[in-house]
Amino acid sequence: MKYLVKFMFIVLLSTSSYSQAYSKAGSFDYYVLALSWQSAFCEYRRGKPACRSQKKSDFSAYNFVLHGLWPNKKGRNGHRYGYCNVSKSIKWKDKKRRWCKMPSLNLSNSVRTDLNKFMPGTMSCLQRHEWYKHGSCSGLSENKYYEVSNRLVDLFSKTSFNKLVANNAGNYIRRSKLLRAFDQEFGKGSRAYLGLKCKRVRGKKLLTEIRIRLQKDLSKIDNFKDVLPTRRFKTMRGNCPSRFKIDAL
């Protein structure tokens, strides 16, 4: 029995050490940029403040919006890399989805204004959840992390890919068409960095989110092509069928 207890103690100790090492800020391989299609999100989250107030004049009506910018490790799924130097009390509030009870972020007025535009979820304090779970591991300050995030969303809104999706709002589209368009705009094989996420809502498969793998170094963000990986990673996973709908407001 004493040997079993000793073994369990060693396992717990090594697991704790691994967890601390695994969640060291800046020790990641790439980012994943998660962008939501707000109209589809609001089809199954109608009670959210941002969904109750969404208007056709909003940026979110015709552009992808920020879900999060996630540092991640090569070969890992589920975004287990997170909560770097975050207290247990904050993690507890986050896991209980008490986001507005978490400490506010130190953001400049300009970054906060842009974030309210590019991330409608700020009405539900999504920015706090994303910072403490993911941004804390970026090695950036709170303000710089969201300055970079805002810049990425703004740049992506100007892409032909974003316009293609917006122009097809209310219509069905083929997965192959979107993947081909991504390749054409960002280079052959770029589709490997794109994951298309769909959800069945009232019997229809809707595009709810896209996830794009980005390189770790985001110091230069003049063109969205600049932030795609310069080396090969595992192909991004998606769950969209061969044909699905782009929801319209």
Rank of each mutant, 00 (worst) to 15 (best):
2 K>E: 04
8 M>Q: 05
8 M>E: 02
10 I>W: 15
10 I>G: 01
12 L>W: 00
13 L>V: 13
17 S>D: 05
33 L>K: 07
35 L>C: 03
38 Q>A: 02
39 S>L: 06
46 R>K: 15
64 F>M: 09
67 H>P: 00
75 G>I: 14
81 Y>V: 05
81 Y>D: 03
86 V>R: 07
87 S>H: 09
91 K>R: 14
95 K>H: 07
101 K>S: 08
104 S>R: 15
109 N>C: 03
111 V>W: 15
113 T>D: 14
118 F>T: 09
125 C>M: 03
130 E>Q: 12
130 E>F: 11
132 Y>W: 10
136 S>H: 01
136 S>V: 09
136 S>C: 01
137 C>F: 00
143 N>A: 05
150 N>L: 09
152 L>G: 05
153 V>P: 00
153 V>E: 03
157 S>M: 08
159 T>H: 03
161 F>I: 15
167 N>I: 01
168 N>M: 06
171 N>Y: 00
180 R>C: 03
182 F>G: 08
182 F>D: 07
189 G>M: 11
199 K>L: 05
204 K>F: 08
204 K>D: 10
206 L>E: 14
215 Q>R: 14
218 L>M: 09
222 D>P: 00
225 K>M: 06
226 D>C: 08
232 R>K: 15
232 R>A: 11
236 M>I: 14
238 G>Q: 13
240 C>S: 09
249 L>Q: 10
